[in-house]
Design a protein around this nucleic acid. Structure first.
Length: 351
DNA sequence: AAACCGTGGTT
DNA sequence: TAACCAAGGTT
């Protein structure tokens, strides 16, 4: 069998996926490396998130904040609004923290060392290795969901995740080449994303098919094994949508920690088995004849929507009014945007 | 160390 | 359609 990394790099030279932040293999071989800021931004956005979902957000962020210094100087609310809809909002809070540390402690220059990168907010083992390898061509080993799957299959590893993770890491590290480590890292992930897919891998066209123990054993499609997850419960809650007579919307900035931390939203009850309404302002409340349903990572949510129209002298106990032109549903996390859309289509208020 | 933390696409 | 899944990190 020919050298596995070289086999994969030859495949990558032909089949590399094109991405806005990526430098194609031909250019990288000529010595060109990507902007570390763009790679860091892409890697944070790509955490548990598909390439398709990230593309437009990455373009929007780099157009508005072209350098890490620009991002570090941004207003928190602008960054959170720009991140709205992408999910895992702690990433956006850590993104800002990280940018500010890079400016304050590293002169606005991204560190190239994996262990230094690991000290930065929002950068864990995967992202530190990815930035070092992809942006600086350091021989670091990335272990993401793709690499775990590929390693489990070519070595026919039956130990379930996450127990198997250290073993899979050792197997992946043993393959990482000294030459073109950045392309190699991207190549394994492209292989996992396009050939060695979770459900029905395309073993027939895989550059690693010859030495793949999982394919030979007939177990590939069932690997990696994973310990079963718990069923997600259903929780309930109330949201309060207040329109002022001039069309302004009552919103609040959610606390920095916890679910949807730091994001804009409509005030509401807690989300529990037995929530109690606690309206943010005295008003003639009416119940909307529609329920907002949304699924988070660890629970389903059913929200009862209460709405009211108040006068221009209204002084809410919670939140603040955003006028027309300032308020935009695009700045809301998806569950709140669903609430907004249900209200907007039920109450023709002129947007 | 297990729980928490979003969303949209695929099966 | 409900479950699964995606370039994970933090506490």
């Amino acid at each position: 069998m020919r050298d596995r990394p070289l086999q994969l790099l030859d495949w990558y030279d032909v089949h590399a996926r094109s991405m806005p932040w990526r430098v194609p293999p031909a250019d990288r071989k000529a010595g060109r490396l990507p902007d570390p800021y763009g790679i860091w931004l892409s890697e944070v956005m790509l955490q548990q998130t598909t390439v398709a979902a990230v593309r437009d957000y990455w373009r929007k962020f780099t157009a508005r904040w072209p350098t890490v210094s620009d991002l570090a100087a941004a207003d928190d609310a602008d960054v959170m609004a720009a991140w709205a809809g992408l999910g895992y909002y702690a990433r956006a809070r850590n993104l800002l923290k990280c940018a500010r540390v890079v400016v304050a402690d590293h002169g606005g220059v991204f560190p190239s060392d994996r262990d230094v990168l690991l000290t930065l907010p929002g950068i864990g083992p995967y992202t530190a290795a990815a930035v070092a390898a992809i942006a600086f061509d350091r021989p670091e080993t990335v272990l993401d969901g793709n690499v775990e799957r590929v390693m489990a299959r070519i070595h026919d590893v039956h130990t379930p995740l996450p127990t198997a993770k250290p073993h899979l890491m050792a197997l992946a590290a043993a393959l990482t080449p000294q030459d073109r480590p950045g392309d190699y890292a991207q190549a394994v992930m492209d292989l996992g994303a396009t050939i060695c897919t979770p459900k029905s891998p395309a073993c027939g066209i895989c550059p690693w098919r010859d030495g793949c123990a999982g394919r030979i054993a007939g177990t590939a499609a069932s690997l990696p094994r994973k310990t079963p997850k718990k069923a997600v419960p259903v929780r309930h809650g109330f949201v309060y949508v207040v329109r002022r007579s001039d069309g302004a919307w009552l919103v609040e900035t959610r606390p920095d920690t916890g679910l949807l931390g730091g994001m804009l939203g409509f005030p509401g009850s807690d989300w529990s088995d037995d929530p109690r309404p606690a309206p943010p302002v005295g008003a003639d409340w009416r119940r909307l004849d529609a329920t907002a349903r949304h699924t988070f990572t660890h629970f389903h949510l059913e929200l009862t929507i209460l709405w009211a129209v108040v006068g221009s002298d209204s002084m809410p106990e919670k939140g603040f009014f955003q006028r027309r032109g300032v308020f935009t549903p695009a700045a809301l996390p998806t569950v709140m945007r669903k609430v907004h859309d249900l209200v907007a289509e039920s109450l023709p208020f002129g947007g």
